[in-house]
Nucleic acid binder design. Structure first.
Ligand SMILES: [Mn+2]
Ligand SMILES: [Mn+2]
Ligand SMILES: [Mn+2]
Ligand SMILES: [Mn+2]
Lengths: 227, 227
DNA sequence: TTAATAAATTAGGCATGACTAAAACGCGCA
DNA sequence: TGCGCGTTTTAGTCATGCCTAATTTATTAA
């Protein structure tokens, strides 16, 4: 077995494992195969490779866990992913639903100098366009901003959109269609118990006050910061 | 054979073929294998693949030639390579000898939107940090700036450093060691017939006039624009 | 305690893109 | 015309990472 080899595939597995661990979920071959759109049998094979490389602790039929080096690598990938996303949105003018797939590629560029200089160039941002925290150059990961799901808000609350749960492009695109963007300040006018939807009021791009009703499904995935 | 597949390997072959064609050299399996640090037998294999994909015209024992689609793809790679190099030097503060290897990775990122927005962000630069022209979004490649090799200059000529021949990192690093950078304005004081070296005068970073003797090997690879 | 079921692993293949060694080719020169 | 040598291709392997199908294991319910 050739040690010390990096590869896009291995790195995507490490990232997927980290993501499940951060959610407190069990890292099974099935859960990983769903995330990466492969098959459980393929995951078993990769678990062996990563285990031989010392990047995960793998007990057959029991699941996997990142080792110190594995976690370091995974966090570095997360850092790169989020910094590139931030660059694309803040500097290049992409919308927040357009950058995930491209960052999925950019995160594999091997150069610590590059990512650290990009970080400095942007002034060391703390959060990516989806509200997720960006690990610093030493791999320190701060908590997600103390945000609340919008469905927890009560009538009269004023808050600003600061993130989303998950990273579904269709959801982000839907938000875009409705004119919901990061930083949008809105006030909860009414909460409908019947279907869990809420009526909100906010200023649109043309400075006009606008009323809108957000569905239960939408507000459950939308994160905001209370004013 | 799975058509329509992109891959880093195939793309590097296309770039290597384009580079040889632009130099007017014959595209043989040996020449490509030297450029890519593979073996001629491997090149034969890849020539077949690229030929099946319609990206090159390949006649066994005769060599290869880019087709229209192949050339388009290769020029797009060249565009991406040079734009990323420019970004790293102009925006991130890299030196011109540090960016080639990283651009070798970045050029494979698949996203026309990304590279076009990066191009716009930088104000549509025409030349990369090594003086090479950057193809535009439609694949139009203008000529290299009409530069002269420094060994062709005569006593009393004043010129500015605008590029290098080839892309050897050791050469670029050597230039850096001597304080020779893009845009440096210098005057030829003497030309030594004996060994082809020339004595020049220029202002260093601290605004002091500085004299230096450049070797024949150095000035042959250094390109400048006459004032 | 055992049987059924769901999850995970093994076995066997395939595609890509490298490699080495051996055979075939093509071109210049006698 | 034909020989010789350097170039190129072919043949056969290997590593990676994916797949499907068959088998094994863990867990849960009877
Ligand atoms: Mn990725
Ligand atoms: Mn993100
Ligand atoms: Mn490359
Ligand atoms: Mn260049």
């Amino acid at each position: 077995m050739k040690l010390s080899e990096k590869s896009r595939s291995r790195q995507d597995y490490l990232k997927a494992i980290l993501s499940l661990e951060l959610n407190g979920a069990k890292v099974s071959t099935t859960s990983i195969s769903e995330k990466l759109k492969t098959k459980p049998a393929s995951v078993t094979g990769m678990f062996k490779v990563l285990s031989d490389l010392g990047l995960i602790e793998y007990i057959p039929y029991r699941g996997a866990e990142l080792t110190k080096p594995g976690r370091t690598e995974a966090i570095s990938l997360m850092r790169k992913h989020r910094l590139w996303e931030t660059f694309m949105v803040e500097n290049l003018g992409f919308k927040w639903d357009e950058v995930h797939e491209i960052a999925e590629q950019l995160e594999h560029i091997e150069s610590k100098e590059l990512i650290d200089k990009l970080d400095a160039y942007m002034g060391y941002p703390s959060f990516d366009p989806h509200g997720d925290p960006i690990p610093d150059a030493d791999g320190n990961l701060c908590d997600r901003r103390k945000l609340v799901q919008v469905n927890m808000l009560k009538q009269g609350d004023t808050a600003s959109v600061q993130g989303v749960l998950g990273s579904s492009d269709t959801f982000l695109r839907h938000l875009g269609d409705l004119g919901i963007r990061l930083g949008l300040v809105f006030t909860v006018m009414r909460v409908f118990e019947f279907d869990g939807s809420i009526q909100v009021e906010f200023e649109d791009e043309d400075w006009n006050m606008k009323e809108m009703t957000w569905s239960k499904k939408l507000v459950e995935q939308l994160l905001a910061e209370l004013k």
